[in-house]
Design a protein around this nucleic acid. Structure first.
Lengths: 190, 190
DNA sequence: GAAGATACGGAGTTACGGTTCCGTTTGTCA
DNA sequence: TGACAAACGGAACCGTAACTCCGTATCTTC
C-alpha cells in the first residue's frame, strides 16, 4: 500500500513514466558499480537522460536514494510474505527468508553499502514500507519463538542491526559474509 | 614496534611535539562528536591551532585518520596481550577481550564509524599494527579452539568483519549493540 | 494536425571543504 | 643574546559535485 510507486498524480506522460523507471534502474546499477562515489551525472548518463530529467523526477539525490531504499524494503516484505505461507520448522523458515534477502542484497552490495551510509533523510522516506515489513517479520519471529527454537530475547527491532552488520561485510573484498550470517544464525537458534 | 609514534626524525621541536599530540586528541574528540562531517578546520580549532599546522603534521586528511586507526589497533593489541596473560576458560578470556574492546570503542562510536567508512588508503597505514594484533588474537583463538569451546571454522580473518558489524551498530541511536555482541558470541561458542 | 502543456537536455552556477602559500612567530643552539 | 632553522596561522585557492535555468523537443487532446 505504501508509496513505492507513482507519488505524482496518476496521469504522467508516457515518456516521463518510462524515464522515471529507467532512472531507478540506472541508479541501482550505478550505485552497485561505484557505491558511494556515484554521482547524479553518472545516473543520468546510464539512464540515457540529462541531469535535468533526473532532477525533475527526484528533487534531490537523497530523494532518489530514498526511493531505492523503499524498493529494497518492498522486496524484503515480499520475501517475508512468501515465507509466512510456507510450513516447516519455523526457525528454518525464518532463516531461509534471511538467506534469500542476503543473497539478493549481495547482488548489488556496493549499492546497499551506499544506502546504509546515507543519512536519516534517506531512510525516513521508507518509514511506511519498513513498518509493513516489520509486521510481517514479527510474525515469522513469533512463530519460531513459540516453537522454542529461537532465542527468546530477540526482537524485530534487532533485525536491521543484524542485517546491516552482515551486509556491510559484503562490500569488503575478502570478507566472508556467509560465515558471518552462519554465526549470527547460530547465535539466534535455540 | 610499528609507526605508532614519531614518523619524523627523533628531534622535533618541543612545540611541534606538543601540537602533534594536541591534534590527535582533538581529532578523536571532533570525530567522536561529528563523525563523518568532521572537517580539518574543526580539528584545528579544537586543537587550538591553525589548519596549516595540522597539515604540517599530517599531509592529508587520510593521513590523520590513518594515524587514528593505528592508535586504535595498538590499543586492541594491548588488550589482547593482557588477555594472553590471564588464565581461565579460553573462550571466556577471548570474549572478555572482545567486550573490553567494544566498550572502549563505544566511547567514541561516531569516530569509529567515520574510520570504518574511510577508504583503503586510511587502513593501509595500519598494516603493521594490524598484523601484530592479528598474531596476538590468533593465539587467543587457538587456545579456545584447542579447548573445544569455540566453533572450529572461525578464523582471525573473520574478526574485523564481526567487529565492524558490531561497532556499526553503536553509531545508530536505538540499536542495542550489546545484544548484537551476545548473539555473535553465542554463535561462536561451542 | 495545431495548440498548449508537460517533459527534456546540458551548460552554467554555487557551495563546500581539502589543500596550499607565504609572511610571521617561536624554539634551539652556540 | 643573536642568528637561523623549524614551525605556525589563516586567508586564499581550486577541484568537485549537487543543483538550477531556460530554450527546445515531445506528448496529448480536441
Amino acid at each position: 500500500m505504501p508509496a513505492t510507486d507513482s507519488p505524482q498524480p496518476r496521469t504522467m506522460r508516457a515518456d516521463a513514466r518510462r524515464n522515471r523507471e529507467a532512472i531507478l534502474v540506472a541508479a541501482k546499477a550505478a550505485f552497485a558499480a561505484q557505491g558511494d562515489e556515484t554521482q547524479m551525472d553518472d545516473v543520468a548518463a546510464r539512464a540515457g537522460v540529462g541531469v535535468g530529467t533526473v532532477y525533475r523526477h527526484f528533487p534531490t539525490k537523497e530523494a532518489l536514494m530514498g526511493e531505492m531504499v523503499c524498493r529494497k524494503f518492498a522486496l524484503i516484505a515480499e520475501h517475508a510474505r512468501e515465507g509466512l505461507l510456507q510450513d516447516g520448522e519455523p526457525f528454518e523458515v525464518f532463516a531461509a527468508v534471511l538467506w534469500r534477502n542476503c543473497e539478493a542484497t549481495a547482488q548489488d552490495a556496493a549499492a546497499q553499502d551506499a544506502l546504509m551510509r546515507a543519512g536519516d533523510a534517506v531512510w525516513d522516506q521508507a518509514h511506511d514500507v519498513m513498518a509493513e515489513m516489520h509486521g510481517l517479520v514479527q510474525q515469522l519471529i513469533d512463530r519460531a519463538q513459540t516453537a522454542g527454537t529461537m532465542r527468546a530475547d530477540f526482537s524485530v527491532q534487532d533485525m536491521p542491526m543484524l542485517m546491516c552488520g552482515v551486509s556491510s561485510a559484503m562490500a569488503h573484498e575478502g570478507w566472508d559474509w556467509r560465515r558471518h550470517m552462519e554465526i549470527v544464525l547460530d547465535g539466534l537458534r535455540r
